[in-house]
């Protein structure tokens, strides 16, 4: 399999790219910083099974003009492309967002609008080849409107919605969509936050996601226990939800 991973220099994307090259999948890492990209290419190359190719291309989710060329570069470098993964996103706490309109706009733009624009490019690219898999990291935060993630959750809810629609419309035509909903995972993004019960590690998430990509699972919660946690939270009546802190 030949995969482009936007956000593969960090966190869950890094762990996923590692699992891919270790079993012989070819990977092009997409990210915004050239130095970071070259360090990640070195890491993946050292871990890759012999004969596995690792490439990189610059792609910043804030710069829509880079999306098409980055996917084209990945396709060209690997001589094919059948999986596109998006793990990159902006995160900020609700408190911080409420005090900073510019940051709010940036987060909503990157996590919702630009991510979808990127997915549209990827959709066209993969459908143009006849088939493919688009795997995008949304969040459990998009499952219900909640006090600590009003804004971030709104962006992720929109993204999850889009991914579901995409899956219904294009699966028949050969495009499988995998919507990953991480609960709390101990990465650089959640750094400084106190980990709740059921916090996951990036590598265990990567193992689950890779299997979901292989099988084309439409929605996957990671760690898997979060499916239960969110089922419970979604079942809470409104008056209860208004009283609790989560």
């Amino acid at each position: 399999m030949k995969a482009a991973v936007l956000g593969g220099t960090r966190g869950m994307g890094r762990a996923l790219a590692r699992r891919m090259v270790e079993r012989g999948d070819w990977v092009t890492v997409l990210g915004r910083d050239g130095e970071e990209l070259s360090r990640s290419v070195a890491d993946l190359s050292a871990r890759a099974t012999p004969g596995t190719q690792v490439h990189s291309a610059v792609c910043d989710l804030e710069k829509t003009a880079q999306f098409g060329p980055a996917l084209e570069a990945a396709d060209h470098a690997m001589g094919g492309l059948d999986v596109v993964v998006v793990t990159a996103a902006v995160f900020a706490t609700q408190d911080k967002l409420e005090d900073d309109a510019a940051l709010t706009q940036k987060l909503l733009t990157v996590d919702f609008a630009n991510t979808i624009v990127f997915c549209e490019e990827a959709r066209k690219k993969l459908l143009g080849k006849g088939k493919g898999t688009l795997c995008v990291f949304s969040s459990v935060a998009g499952d219900r409107g909640r006090k600590p993630v009003v804004l971030y959750g709104a962006a992720k809810a929109g993204l999850s919605h889009y991914l579901e629609g995409l899956d219904h419309k294009f699966r028949q035509q050969g495009l499988k969509t995998v919507c990953v909903k991480p609960g709390f995972v101990r990465t650089g993004m959640t750094d400084g936050l106190k980990a709740p019960p059921f916090a996951g590690e990036p590598d265990e998430v990567a193992a689950v996601v890779l299997q979901a990509i292989d099988e084309g699972t439409p929605v996957v919660y990671v760690p898997p226990i979060w499916r239960l946690v969110m089922t419970a939270i979604k079942a809470l009546p409104r008056f209860a939800m208004r009283r609790v802190g989560f």
Binding site: R146, L193, P196, G245
Partner: peptide
């Protein structure tokens, strides 16, 4: 990510 997680 969540308020209660933030409270040290």
């Amino acid at each position: 990510m969540y308020e209660y997680l933030m409270s040290h």
